[in-house]
């Protein structure tokens, strides 16, 4: 009985995982947008003399590039995960638009 039962469960898990990875892929740009728009909350000269200390440029540069690297790394990881499944395109199509 278990011999017949196990493989479908395994396949189901895999395709489930792939779908969630596709979700992650789709949400990644939204995360990127949020992280890159975060500097909008940093104080600027226009906030007047009462504003907190301004962000140092080195910190700003480090932050922007760290986000960049994170996004690239995540996109790369997701791509290499999804690449192994040949149905990547079809799977994407099967999802409701």
């Amino acid at each position: 009985m278990s011999e017949h039962g196990l493989p479908p469960v395994f396949l189901e898990r895999r395709s489930y995982r792939r779908r969630r990875m596709m979700d992650a892929l789709r949400l990644l740009p939204i995360l990127g947008l949020f992280l890159w728009m975060l500097p909008l909350f940093w104080p600027t000269a226009a906030d007047g003399p009462g504003a907190p200390d301004k962000m140092a440029m080195s910190t700003a540069v480090t932050y922007v590039f760290a986000v960049w690297l994170t996004l690239i790394g995540s996109a790369l990881a997701l791509w290499s995960f999804l690449r192994s499944s040949p149905e990547m395109g079809e799977d994407a199509n099967a999802e409701p638009r």
Binding site: M37, P39, L40, W42, P43, T44, A45, A46, K54, M55, A56, M57, S58, T59, A60, V61
Partner: peptide
């Protein structure tokens, strides 16, 4: 040197950034 330069502080026009 970046922090000591004329552009050493974050001073962004928010509307332009978006």
């Amino acid at each position: 040197r970046i922090d000591a330069s004329p552009i050493g502080e974050w001073d962004m026009d928010r509307s332009r950034w978006v």
